[in-house]
């Protein structure tokens, strides 16, 4: 709890520094009121963040997080090229349709993040969930291995959190 509060506070205060800085040529005395307001605003924002999105007790594997980020970066680049290829192709090669994906992540902010990430990877767009609690995806091309791609992303996302045995 304290850990994630501190982490978020650091992140939000960093965001404040992005907004308020840089103080080129200003003495620290001139920058001081800015920093003081930033400390207050950062604390307020952290409090709101903890209220809206309470931290979970699990710890985070940063290696897995990094791998997910790099895989996501690569896939989103492929997604852009994929769209460009289809949009500029005179024959408009699309085979759109729906895909019910039996998601393993329980309903949580993590699942929402999964939906958001997979909406930016090639050919898939999360639309909602159905009665059986499957995620419904809209796919641009049903001939692509959409479900396999989703499963590999999901496996990586599931590896990020682990229960802290020390607690």
């Amino acid at each position: 709890m304290l850990r994630s509060a501190l982490g978020r506070w650091a992140l939000l205060f960093g965001f404040w520094l992005l907004l308020a800085g840089p103080w080129d040529g200003a003495s620290w005395r001139e920058a001081l009121p800015d920093l003081a307001v930033g400390l207050l605003a950062g604390s307020l924002a952290t409090w709101v963040s903890l209220r809206l999105l309470p931290p979970t007790p699990e710890r985070i594997r940063y290696g897995a997080l990094l791998r997910l980020a790099s895989q996501f970066l690569g896939k989103s680049i492929v997604a852009g090229f994929d769209i460009a290829r289809r949009a500029f192709d005179p024959r408009l090669p699309l085979r759109p349709g729906y895909l019910d994906y039996p998601v393993r992540i329980p309903p949580s902010p993590d699942r929402a993040a999964f939906g958001a990430l997979t909406s930016l990877t090639p050919g898939t767009l999360a639309v909602g969930s159905d009665e059986k609690d499957h995620l419904v995806y809209h796919c641009l091309d049903l001939d692509q291995p959409n479900a396999a791609s989703l499963a590999s992303d999901e496996a990586l996302l599931l590896r990020i959190r682990f229960a802290d045995s020390a607690q």
């Binding site: 989103s76 680049i77 997604a79 852009g80 090229f81 994929d82 769209i83 460009a84 289809r86 949009a87 500029f88 408009l92 699309l94 759109p96 909406s119 930016l120 090639p122 050919g123 767009l125 639309v127 809209h138 641009l140």
Partner: peptide, 23 residues
């Protein structure tokens, strides 16, 4: 181009979210 050429709302959303993100 995708927004203009793709056949329906959902495929157009694909075009917007993915291409604009990379752009």
């Amino acid at each position: 181009v995708g927004l203009l050429r793709f056949p329906d709302t959902l495929t157009r959303l694909h075009a917007l979210t993915k291409a604009d993100n990379l752009g």
